[in-house]
């Protein structure tokens, strides 16, 4: 049996080697080489100039992850309380945007947030802008929403929220209902049932939700480019520029990628260590 399994695993191993391991090795090799091909640490010493981009990326990704968690957890929790029919419909609604192309979705946000886009037109119609001008003594004809950090965070939340909801929901919905009954039986009111039983037992879902939102958020470049207008450069944009843009410098790009990867891995390790006890508990 074991032998058979390993034979079936061969294609997977080849795939992993070709498309995961070798690219990582290439990234490492590039990061430590100069344009002429010799070994150098110069790429890393130049990273200092990009500290602003690093902190901005991690800050925005963190904010987006936090917002996703604040929206995603209650949604998952409430969904799991409803009947199976509601759960199915809600699940389809959550997945629906993901059936559309990622770029298309982000483009539509552009036209919603534009200076004379849908939202600003709506605000004009209902007199919100006039009211704002009156209250604050300004003279705006529209709210500037596009090309801000807020728009970038919005784009991240919109695109990655399902990745927060799904893992949390699937953990909560599988919780043994007799555990909740036992807690109620032992004198726990609704709040305590949540605080002492549901929350600790759903932590593994929360952790994987955080991972699945944070990692793509921190490395995104399409969202920041389209909704941030390129003014709010993030790590993804920076790396893209080194490979495809005018600042062509793949060695530097590799170094940035490597450092970003290491920081993300470090974050994940710390977080998983933190949640290890709970994870085992749910593995039962």
């Amino acid at each position: 049996m074991k032998h058979k399994l390993s034979r079936f695993a061969i294609p997977y191993v080849i795939w992993m080697a070709l498309f995961v391991v070798i690219p990582i090795i290439l990234v490492v090799v590039y990061a430590f080489s100069s344009a002429s091909g010799g070994f150098t640490l110069e790429n890393f010493s130049r990273l200092g100039t990009y500290t602003v981009v690093f902190t901005r990326s991690f800050r925005l990704a963190l904010i987006a992850t936090l917002i996703c968690l604040l929206i995603g957890y209650p949604v998952s929790y409430m969904m799991s309380k409803e009947g199976p029919r509601f759960q199915r419909i809600a699940m389809v609604l959550i997945m629906l945007p993901m059936w559309m192309n990622f770029l298309l979705r982000t483009y539509s946000w552009m036209s919603i947030l534009e200076n004379n886009g849908l939202l600003n037109q709506l605000f004009q119609k209902i007199g919100l802008i006039a009211l704002y001008n009156q209250v604050f003594g300004t003279d705006l004809t529209f709210f500037r929403m596009l090309n801000t950090q807020g728009a970038v965070v919005l784009g991240m939340v919109y695109n990655y929220l399902p990745f927060m909801i799904l893992p949390i929901y699937s953990v909560i919905v599988k919780l043994d209902s007799s555990l909740i009954e036992a807690a109620r039986d032992l004198g726990a009111n609704t709040f305590h049932v949540f605080r002492r039983v549901i929350l600790p037992l759903s932590l593994p879902g929360v952790l994987s939700g955080i991972t699945m939102v944070f990692v793509p958020s921190v490395s995104t470049f399409a969202i920041s480019k389209m909704l941030g207008g390129g003014t709010e450069m993030m790590l993804g944009d920076l790396i893209e520029q080194q490979f495809l843009g005018g600042a062509y410098n793949p060695q530097l790009g590799a170094a940035i990628s490597l450092v970003m990867m290491l920081i993300v891995v470090a974050c994940m390790v710390v977080m998983n260590r933190f949640g290890e006890g709970e994870e085992q508990a749910v593995m039962l």
């Binding site: 555990l179 009954e181 036992a182 807690a183």
Partner: peptide, 30 residues
Amino acid sequence: VPPYRRKINTVFQKYALFPHLNVFENIAFG
């Protein structure tokens, strides 16, 4: 009267012990 206000406690069919708590904390829960 909700379960937590009744002077009644239950031993569940599949025990329903809290997997994230040790024996002491399970017993101390109530």
